[in-house]
Design a protein around this nucleic acid. Structure first.
Length: 457
RNA sequence: GCCGUCAUCGUCUAGAGGCCUAGGACGACACCCUUUCAAGGUGUAGACCGCGGGUUCGAAUCCCGCUGGCGGCACCA
C-alpha cells in the first residue's frame, strides 16, 4: 500500500506555497494508488516555533481539499521514541556523544573555512571513553548525539534524478539529538517515515544533499529504504528558491486574493508535469488519473503568477452564475448584498480573473466616485446633454439607454467612444468598468443621472 | 571554496535519433468585433534547442568536456 506524507514545520505564519505544491503531489500519488496521505507536524525546532502556525497550516490544507487520511501527529510528542532509537545507534557504535560547546564548534569551523577546508566536525569527542562520557553526563554537561559517518560512498536511487552518489567524506557527523533532547530533522524523519510505513518520500529537491545521511541511518537501523522522489523547487522570477522577499509565499494569501483552490492546484499540475494531450485546464480527477511521479521534470520552474491569474479567470468563467454569486458574496461578507451581487455578477463574470477583482470593477455600485480617472472639464456640455436625454427616457433599459445615446452621439457628431468614455468616467470614476448601460440599469435612473450632473459641475 | 543537481521561445512546457525549416499555453504585440473601456475572436513576433567536441547516413534527442543557473554544506527544517 502506498503511503505518502508531508511534514510541515510550524515555523511560519502559514503553509508555504512550495509545501502546498509538494502536498498536492503527495496527496495525488496516494489517491492514484488508493493509498494514504498523512500529515506530520515537524515541530522539533523549539526556538523557531510560531504560535498558531500549526493550526493555520492545517486549516489551509483543508481549504485546498488536501486533507489527510489519518489524524495528524506531532514529533514533539514522540520524544521517547527518538531517544530509544538513538540509544540503539550509540550502542551499535553508529553514533556518539559530543560535549563540544557551540563556541568551540564555531572556532573550529572558522579555522577550517580560513584554511579553505570543508567545515566539518573534527570528531573531538569521538575519542572519549565510555567512562568519560558517563562522568560528563552525570555532571550534567550539555551534550548532543552525533552520527558517526562511515567511510565509503553512499548511493541511492531517486525516481526523478536516477542514481545519486555522494562520497561520505563530504558528509558531516551530523547531530541527531540536540542538547535540548529534541531530535534533529534527520533523525526524526527517518524514524517516523519507517514507523509510519511511508513508502514514498516525495519532497523538495533541496533535500537531496542530506538524503545520504538518511540512507545511512536506514542502513544502521537495518530498515528498508522508501522510494525517494525529489521534486523541483518553485522559483522566483530570478530563478532563486521561492522566497517571501520576492513573492507572496503563504498559501492563504492566494486565497485571500480570490484565487480558487482548484485553479491553484491545476496551475501546480503544470509545474514540472504536463498533460499528455497538452491540455492546460483539467480537474483533480483527471490529474489523479494521468499523473505519475516518474513523469515529473527535474527543472525548477518559475512561479508565474500571470499564468495562474489567467487560469483562475478560466475557472471563474466556467462557474455557473449562482455558484459564483454565492462565492463572491461569501468572499466579501456583507460589503455587497446578495441581491446586488446577483445583479452584478453576470456583468463581470467574463472579465474578473480573481474574486478580489470583483471589487475593483464593482465598488462604484456602492458609492459615487470620489475622484475621476480622467479629467471631464472639457466634456461638461456633452454630459449635460447626456443627462437631459436620459432624463426624458421613460423605459429605463440598457437597450434604450444605448439607443438614445447613440442617437445623441450622431446628432452631436461625437464618436461613440468619446461619449461613452465620458459617461463611464462620470458614473464610475474609472476607465475600465463593466458594460456601462447595464450598470446604469442596476444603479437606477435617479442615481445615474445625479452622478452625470455632478460630474458636469 | 567543496559536494550535488539542472540546462528547448520572457515564463510554463511538448519533444525519449529521422514525423522539428522545433509544437502548445501564459504574457507581449497587431488586427477584427463593438451602443463605449474592458472582455471576446483572429493573427504575428518570439528558442539557430547554453557552448565546444564526438558517435551516427542523420542529434534538441546518445557520449565527453566546458560554461552558466540553482540547491546544500547549522544543536533550521
Amino acid at each position: 500500500m502506498v503511503r505518502t506524507r508531508i511534514a510541515p514545520s510550524p515555523t511560519g505564519e502559514d503553509l508555504h506555497i512550495g509545501n502546498l505544491y509538494t502536498a498536492l503531489l503527495n496527496w495525488t500519488w496516494a489517491r492514484k494508488n488508493n493509498g494514504a496521505f498523512i500529515i506530520r507536524i515537524e515541530d522539533t525546532d523549539r526556538t523557531r516555533l510560531v504560535p498558531g502556525s500549526e493550526e493555520q497550516i492545517l486549516k489551509t490544507l483543508a481549504a485546498f481539499g488536501l486533507s489527510p487520511d489519518e489524524p495528524f501527529c506531532r514529533q514533539s510528542e514522540r520524544l521517547s521514541i527518538y531517544h530509544e532509537y538513538v540509544e540503539q545507534l550509540v550502542d551499535k557504535g553508529h553514533a556518539y556523544y559530543c560535549f563540544c560547546t557551540p563556541e568551540r564548534l564555531d572556532t573550529v569551523r572558522k579555522e577550517q573555512i580560513a584554511q579553505k577546508k570543508q567545515p566539518k566536525y573534527d570528531r573531538h569527542c569521538l575519542s572519549l571513553s565510555p567512562n568519560e562520557v558517563n562522568e560528563k553526563i552525570e555532571r550534567g554537561e550539555p551534550h548532543v548525539i552525533r552520527m558517526k559517518i562511515p567511510e565509503g560512498k553512499t548511493t541511492f536511487h531517486d525516481v526523478i534524478h536516477g542514481d545519486i552518489t555522494i562520497d561520505n567524506a563530504t558528509i558531516d557527523d551530523t547531530i541527531l539529538l540536540k542538547s535540548d533532547q529534541f531530535p534533529t530533522y534527520h533523525l526524526a524523519v527517518v524514524i517516523d517515515d519507517h514507523l509510519m510505513n511511508i513508502t514514498h518520500v516525495i519532497r523538495a529537491e533541496e533535500w537531496i544533499p542530506s538524503t545520504p545521511k538518511h540512507v545511512l541511518l536506514y542502513h544502521m537501523f537495518g530498515w528498508q529504504l522508501p522510494v525517494f522522489v525529489h521534486t523541483p523547487i518553485l522559483r522566483n522570477p530570478d530563478k532563486s528558491k521561492l522566497s517571501k522577499r520576492k513573492n507572496p509565499v503563504w498559501s492563504s494569501w492566494y486565497l485571500a486574493q480570490g484565487y480558487l483552490p482548484d485553479a491553484i492546484l491545476n496551475y501546480f499540475g503544470l509545474m514540472g508535469w504536463s498533460h499528455p494531450e497538452g491540455k492546460e485546464i483539467f480537474n483533480r480527477d483527471e490529474f489523479i488519473r494521468l499523473f505519475d511521479i516518474k513523469d515529473i521534470q527535474s527543472v525548477g520552474p518559475v512561479f508565474d503568477i500571470a499564468k495562474l491569474t489567467w487560469m483562475n479567470g478560466e475557472y471563474i468563467r466556467m462557474m455557473d452564475l449562482s455558484q459564483l454569486t454565492k462565492k463572491i458574496h461569501n468572499f466579501f461578507g456583507d460589503r455587497y448584498s446578495i441581491e446586488l451581487t446577483k445583479q452584478i455578477v453576470p456583468l463581470v463574470q467574463e472579465r474578473i480573473k480573481t474574486l478580489q477583482e470583483f471589487d475593483t470593477y464593482s465598488s462604484f455600485f456602492l458609492a459615487a466616485p470620489a475622484a475621476y480617472e480622467q479629467d471631464l472639464s472639457a466634456q461638461r456640455d456633452l454630459l449635460i446633454s447626456i443627462a437631459g436625454r436620459l432624463d426624458s427616457l421613460t423605459d429605463w433599459t440598457a437597450q434604450n439607454i444605448g439607443y438614445v445615446l447613440e442617437e445623441l452621439a450622431r446628432e452631436k457628431s461625437v464618436s461613440n467612444s468619446k461619449l461613452f468614455m465620458a459617461l463611464r468616467i462620470a458614473i464610475t470614476g474609472k476607465k475600465i468598468t463593466p458594460p456601462i448601460n447595464e450598470s446604469m440599469v442596476t444603479l437606477g435612473k435617479t442615481e445615474s443621472i445625479a452622478r452625470i450632473k455632478k460630474a458636469a459641475e
